Computed example of a mutant assay.
Amino acid sequence: MSLVRARFRRSSRRTTGGRATLLAVATLAGALTLSACGGSDGGKPVSGSGGNYVTGASGISTVSRAERTEAPKLDGETVRDETLDTTTLKGKVVVLNVWGSWCPPCRNEAKYFATVSKEYADAGKDVAFVGINTRDNSKQSAISFEENYGITYPSLYDPAGKLMLRFPKGTLNPNAIPSTIVLDKDGRIAARTLAPINDEQLRSMIEPILAEK
């Protein structure tokens, strides 16, 4: 009888340990899912500073001209099977928007990006918009998203999120979806937000950098 009880206890420990492991994995997966679509501040106002940048009450982080870091080369195939290299856009203010068709906050802000990008294009200003489409399993999903929301600028197709990892650690990198990063005319990282934004917020990120001489 004691042998049976001993075997039962060992079996119970293995089952409990297995359940604990599965629970830990599920918890981690859930955390990753929650952080995968939305800013780290949940869209709430943030203030403070960190590294060489300052985050204002709007949740938009900025870097002074003297402290800016060169942005990485972002290149590859777009969702429409064209090629794109962001380093060729130096001389313009570049607006990078990381998005996925599966992401509700991305859908919420898409109309603003469509509107503002068209405004700058129609005005002939030196501003280029580039999307980075990530975690979409097919280009068709991304294309349908662009057509639904009137997005006319190109988006690099990055289903595995490899382009996001090119940004140097400690800089204003796009570690949430959606993320928006603005590069100055020298190709340096000047501003970032990790939350969905509206048209006014988007313009507020672009205009000061565009005005720089």
Rank of each mutant, 00 (worst) to 15 (best):
M1H: 04
L3G: 04
A6Y: 07
A6I: 10
R7F: 15
F8H: 12
R9N: 12
R10T: 09
R10K: 02
S11C: 12
R13W: 14
R13L: 14
T15Y: 11
T16W: 15
T16P: 11
G18V: 07
R19N: 07
A20G: 12
L22H: 05
A26T: 06
T27M: 14
T27K: 15
L28A: 14
L28C: 11
G30A: 14
A31L: 12
A31F: 12
A31V: 13
L32I: 12
L34W: 01
S35K: 05
S35H: 02
A36L: 05
C37F: 08
D41W: 10
G42E: 04
G42W: 13
G43T: 00
P45H: 01
P45K: 08
S47L: 11
G48R: 06
G48Y: 05
N52W: 13
V54Q: 14
G56L: 13
T62G: 02
T62L: 07
R65V: 13
R65A: 12
R68T: 07
A71C: 02
P72V: 00
P72Q: 03
K73M: 03
G76E: 03
E77P: 01
D81L: 05
T83I: 05
L84C: 01
L84D: 02
D85Y: 05
T86A: 10
T86D: 12
T86E: 10
K90H: 07
G91K: 07
G91V: 07
K92I: 01
K92C: 01
V93C: 00
V95A: 08
L96M: 04
L96K: 00
N97A: 03
W99H: 07
G100P: 00
G100S: 07
S101Y: 01
P105G: 03
N108S: 09
N108V: 09
A110V: 01
Y112A: 13
F113N: 03
A114E: 06
T115S: 14
V116Q: 09
K118P: 02
Y120G: 00
A121S: 14
A123F: 10
K125E: 15
D126W: 12
V127G: 08
S138D: 02
K139C: 06
S141A: 13
A142T: 06
E146F: 08
E147H: 00
N148E: 15
G150N: 10
Y153T: 03
Y153R: 02
S155T: 03
S155A: 11
L156S: 00
P159T: 00
G161F: 04
G161H: 10
G161L: 04
L163D: 04
M164L: 14
L165H: 00
L165F: 07
K169Q: 08
G170I: 11
T171S: 15
N173H: 14
P174Q: 09
N175P: 11
N175R: 14
P178F: 03
P178G: 11
T180V: 13
T180K: 10
I181P: 08
V182Y: 09
D184M: 13
D186W: 07
G187I: 10
G187M: 04
G187C: 12
R188S: 11
R188N: 15
A191M: 03
A191G: 13
R192F: 11
L194Y: 08
L194F: 01
E200S: 15
Q201F: 06
Q201H: 09
Q201M: 11
L202Y: 05
M205L: 15
A211V: 07
A211T: 01
E212W: 14
K213D: 06
